[in-house]
């Protein structure tokens, strides 16, 4: 299943709830303000860094760029994708769950 998260982990529990329910082998795509969850060195980094061993985590590139976050600031293991990658992830998974 593909999970998308569009809220900042500093403002909403969306990412935490998503990580609690996502099965190993799932994909998580961080979009819009959700991309702040991909930042390394924050008080929420550990929660996502732990998950990256069992879950593939992606962040949407255009939303990172808009917010001035270069790839080298992200948690290692998080892959940056464009809109085409978003579409591919949606097609590759049988279901898409949006944590709004």
């Amino acid at each position: 299943m593909l999970h998308t998260v569009n809220k900042s982990p500093f403002e909403s529990a969306s990412l935490k709830v998503c990580l609690g329910l996502a099965k190993p082998g799932s994909d998580i795509l961080l979009i819009e303000d959700g991309i702040y969850g991909a930042l390394a060195g924050t008080i929420h980094t550990a929660m996502l860094a732990e998950a990256t061993s069992a879950i593939s985590v992606y962040a949407l590139g255009p939303d990172l760029k808009a917010r001035g976050l270069p790839e080298d600031r992200l948690i290692p293991g998080i892959k940056v994708v464009g809109y085409d990658g978003f579409v591919e992830l949606a097609c590759a998974n049988d279901k898409v769950q949006s944590w709004l």
Partner: peptide, 23 residues
């Protein structure tokens, strides 16, 4: 304060996302 500090982040570039860059 809080996530508001992200408003002042350097290097915002909204071209690909199609939003207005008001930074």
């Amino acid at each position: 304060i809080s996530d508001g500090v992200f408003q002042l982040k350097q290097g915002q570039d909204t071209i690909e996302s199609g939003m207005k860059n008001f930074s």
